[in-house]
Simulated assay, not measured.
Amino acid sequence: MYEGKGTSVDSILVDTPEKLNVGGRYVLKLADTLLKGVSVFTDRFFTSIPLVDCMLSRSLTVTGTLMSNRVPKEAKFESDSILKKRGRGSSDQLVRQDEKMVLVKWFDSRPVQMASSKCGSEPLGECKRWSKSDNKYIQIPQPNVIKEYNAFMGGVDLLDRVIGKYCMRSRTKKWTIRFIYHFFDFAAAASWLEYREDAPLARLEKKQIMDYMDFKFAIAQALLYNLEDKENETSEDEEAVEIKKPRLVEALPARGFRRESALHLPEFMNDKQKSRSKCRLAGCKMLTFTRCTACNVFLCCSVNRNCFLLFHK
């Protein structure tokens, strides 16, 4: 964790340049364990010209997106307006005199700057993008450095993108609360990425793999059901206080929770009119005295009608 201004992180193997920012210092420190010839991919927070040069001294290549204010003043890219006139997919490339570093500016929906000591624009490839004017997908030119970055990017960049989809938001500016919320999102996003990688190994079909929003709902349901079970266990020894409340329709539990058959047992109510209820299986309109102890819904359970079994399949 970055603790703020004044925190120094230095590499053991090489001297840290004075102009290297805190992001670059962490990359340099983590690269102490890498072998020569390894390629490192970083996002815009970490990428800088001093970092690329310092990693080159260790025979390590760096490729990453570059902030506009970190592009050297002597590097004169074509302006955004010129690239926009040339069309989507246009690019400009600058090669340093020693030919050890390349800067590439590519115009997609917006301009993107790249710095690399590994590859440049050539060979040009293609990528598919949606065109609003044509109302269809079109092929546009794509520099090789962009293709390499998209193929190997991940880690911080991918995790931040997932967290930003459905992050926990709060109006408070207290760093402690925002810190805790961020790590809840961090844990959920990292778990979903791991789940998505392990899904093919579990032989799940593509349509069975949950997207990130459904995955977070599944986490919430699991926590809520677990909490309800614990509350029921602690309240068994307490004296029950009868409070008359208006009858509410119980919400149907999630399909995944229904299939945990070891928790679902039938409970037969007293043979009184007030203790029976309508069967909750879709299509059944009969009244029944049998209730599922886990789902807390009434289901038929007899020789002629076994809605209890059909509900949990």
Rank of each mutant, 00 (worst) to 15 (best):
P50F: 11
V27Y: 03
I82W: 04
R44Q: 14
F41V: 12
V52H: 02
R44K: 15
E74I: 14
K84S: 11
L20G: 02
R25Q: 09
T16G: 00
K29L: 05
D43F: 11
R70E: 09
L51P: 06
T63E: 06
L34E: 03
K84L: 13
N21E: 12
Y26A: 10
G24W: 11
R44W: 12
T63Y: 06
K73S: 09
T47I: 10
K84W: 07
K85Y: 07
E74Q: 12
S48R: 07
N69Y: 14
L30V: 09
G37R: 07
L83N: 12
V22G: 01
L60K: 00
V14R: 14
V52R: 00
A31Y: 04
Y26F: 15
V22R: 12
L35A: 12
K29H: 13
F45P: 03
P17G: 10
S81F: 01
L28G: 01
L56G: 07
R44S: 15
R44F: 05
K29A: 10
D15S: 12
R25S: 02
E18S: 14
V71E: 01
T16D: 04
P50R: 10
P72T: 11
G64L: 06
V38I: 13
L28N: 00
T16V: 04
R44I: 15
L35P: 13
S39T: 11
L34M: 08
S68Y: 02
V52C: 10
V22S: 10
R70V: 09
P72L: 06
L66A: 05
G37H: 06
L66S: 00
K85M: 04
I82N: 07
I82R: 03
L83F: 15
R25E: 04
I49S: 00
F77W: 06
S48F: 06
I49G: 00
G23R: 08
K36W: 12
G37C: 02
F77Q: 08
E74D: 14
E78N: 03
A31Q: 06
K76C: 03
V14S: 10
L83C: 10
L51G: 03
V62L: 15
E74H: 15
M67L: 13
S68M: 01
F41Q: 09
V62C: 08
K29V: 03
R70T: 08
K85S: 09
S81G: 08
P50T: 10
K85G: 00
P50N: 12
D80F: 07
L66H: 02
L60C: 05
F45V: 02
V62H: 03
R70M: 12
R44E: 13
T65M: 13
T61R: 08
S79C: 08
S57Q: 12
E78W: 06
V62I: 15
F77K: 11
D15G: 05
R70L: 10
L83A: 09
L34R: 02
L60M: 10
V71H: 01
E78V: 07
V22K: 06
R44Y: 09
D53W: 14
K36R: 13
P72R: 05
E74M: 11
V52G: 02
V22M: 12
T16C: 04
D32C: 11
F45W: 14
V52Y: 05
D32N: 15
S68C: 01
I49N: 00
N21M: 07
D43C: 05
E74G: 06
K73R: 14
